[in-house]
């Protein structure tokens, strides 16, 4: 009976979780090598060569990885600081509500908030004008659709930081970091040694898989870079959708090439993350 239930569960997982993803991936691979699609007429690697030679994919990948990496590093650092500095205050009901609130805001809404706050015609620009810091709106720094992706990163950091605060608070309590801190001090550790030898290693050891997954999540983010990003380079998902929706039908295959490469990279990264997590869990 138990075995049967297990088999049904496995079947449902394959049908709902695996099959659609694998089918879509196979379709994308076939499209990328000319074996599927309206204008394609047989196997070819010219779309792969075109993507590779244009250099746009690599630029977009580097740009996306840079944005995702900086956003994750800043978010994790800010969340770590907030957790360690205000762990007691963050337990209060109204403050924990304030932390939970940004988690309920969808990316697209967060992006619009960023536009309203940081655009040249936005709220902060108006404040700056009324305070006499700028003489006209165009003097306000570019924070939206800007070349350094500051708007995108700001939106990502706003969305992700509260999640990491909650995560670190949880691990701090579950792993009894407060008691381990007292113990380390009792064994002769000063504040700096406690931080670097006890607190950070314990918190990061328990959360690095999720940190890695958040990097992957931000790498493939769509709405925020679509609204706040610049024309070129674009983040990966925006580039893929742009290529796939092109009027030039031959370009669609190139979009699928980018999608296939991105999927393979993300899948490998996820497998690596979980494989390493399993091996560290096995070892302790």
């Amino acid at each position: 009976m138990k075995n049967r239930r297990l088999h049904i569960g496995l079947l449902l997982f394959v049908l709902i979780g695996v099959l659609p993803f694998v089918s879509a991936f196979v379709y994308a691979v076939l499209y990328s090598v000319g074996l599927a699609g309206v204008v394609n007429d047989g196997f070819t690697l010219r779309f792969w060569a075109a993507v590779w030679n244009s250099g746009e994919f690599l630029r977009s990948f580097g740009y996306s990885a840079g944005i995702a990496g900086i956003s994750v590093v800043v978010s994790v650092s800010a969340a770590m600081w907030l957790t360690l500095q205000f762990k007691r205050e963050l337990q209060h009901r109204w403050l924990s509500f304030v932390i939970y609130l940004p988690l309920a805001i969808p990316g697209v809404v967060a992006a619009f908030f960023m536009v309203q706050l940081f655009a040249k015609s936005g709220l902060f620009s108006r404040f700056a004008y009324h305070l006499g810091w700028i003489a006209e709106a165009r003097e306000f720094p570019d924070l939206i659709n800007d070349p350094y992706a500051l708007g995108i990163m700001l939106a990502f950091i706003t969305i992700v930081t509260p999640f990491f605060v909650l995560l670190f608070l949880n691990v701090y309590q579950n792993e009894r970091v407060a008691e381990l801190t007292e113990l380390a001090e009792s064994l002769g550790a000063n504040k700096k040694q406690v931080l670097w030898r006890v607190t950070l290693p314990i918190l990061l050891r328990k959360t690095w898989t999720l940190i890695g997954l958040y990097f992957i999540f931000l790498l493939g983010s769509y709405e925020v870079p679509l609204i706040l990003g610049q024309e070129s380079p674009q983040m990966l998902s925006v580039l893929i959708i742009r290529e796939i929706k092109q009027y030039d039908l031959s370009k669609i295959s190139e979009g699928y090439v980018v999608a296939v490469i991105y999927t393979i990279f993300v899948s490998l990264a996820a497998v690596l993350l979980f494989y390493r997590k399993k091996s560290t869990t096995d070892a302790g």
């Binding site: 792993e175 009894r176 008691e179 381990l180 007292e182 113990l183 380390a184 001090e185 009792s186 064994l187 002769g188 550790a189 000063n190 030898r197 006890v198 290693p201 314990i202 050891r205 302790g284």
Partner: peptide, 29 residues
């Protein structure tokens, strides 16, 4: 401060550093 007293307080539970091996736990101080 606790770190300057050379007094070690041992908890009721066997509180070991979870990220360190047994060797490194003993070597911590």
């Amino acid at each position: 401060s606790p770190s300057d007293r050379h007094i070690v307080y041992l908890y009721q539970e066997d509180l070991l550093f979870p990220h360190l091996t047994i060797f490194e736990n003993i070597a911590f101080g």
